[in-house]
């Protein structure tokens, strides 16, 4: 095996460990009210932290990213579908980049 393949497989195993450990070890429901509440909020917290402020740097230009973000926020507020929100944000960013 060459070195690249070894590194790739190592990455694969290391990526899999945090994914599989809790799911296999934690069977059945947790009893603690705190933990259950905590886990209820995790998806929103993770998504929020992943999106902001990284989104500002996602297009290579903060200005166009801000416009795309605003378009996404407004459409999401009106509860448009995932695809609508994503495609509209892309188009907004693209138009901004053409203008700049």
């Amino acid at each position: 095996m060459n070195k690249t393949l070894i590194a790739v497989l190592l990455m694969a195993v290391i990526t899999y460990i945090p994914r599989v450990t809790p799911m296999v070890l934690v069977r059945g429901k947790l009893k603690s009210r705190f933990l259950r509440s905590f886990l209820y909020y995790v998806p929103y917290a993770v998504l929020g932290a992943m999106t902001f402020p990284t989104i500002l740097y996602s297009t290579g230009h903060v200005g166009s990213a801000v416009v795309g973000m605003i378009v996404a926020l407004v459409l999401a507020l009106f509860e448009r579908s995932l695809v609508t929100v994503a495609v509209s944000a892309i188009v907004a960013v693209y138009l901004m980049q053409c203008l700049i």
Binding site: T54, I55, S58, T59, V71, E79, S81, V85, A89
Partner: peptide, 21 residues
């Protein structure tokens, strides 16, 4: 320009998931 515009797609999707809730 198209490629870099697409960089925002996943984050826009995350926004669409969080905001209504």
């Amino acid at each position: 320009a198209v490629q870099s515009s697409m960089g925002i797609a996943l984050y826009a999707m995350f926004i669409a998931l969080i905001v209504p809730s």
